[in-house]
Amino acid sequence: MSLDKTEVQKIAWLARLSIDEQDISTYSDELSNILGLVESMNSVDTNGISPIAHPLDLTARLRSDAITEINQREQFQKNAPLTDAGCYLVPKVIE
């Protein structure tokens, strides 16, 4: 599978990554090479093999419904680039 420039741009948008116009063809080559490597997976027949998302077959351990967290807004918002009146700010969203 090779990825042309349009596809690279599509993926970059899906992942919300700005990439420089002049880098697109490099990405196109590199990503195509990686996909080429990855496609060697097709050399093995995996019909009937169940996919595993975790190495160990464990099941979830649930927590009890209890409030354990306190308000740390001030502390957390020290890392925030832009806040006002306790809210995080982003350029105006039009719905």
């Binding site: 006002d84 809210c87 700010l89 982003v90």
Partner: peptide
């Protein structure tokens, strides 16, 4: 929030 959107 002026020209911004506030996130809670």
């Amino acid at each position: 929030f002026g020209d911004q959107t506030g996130i809670d």
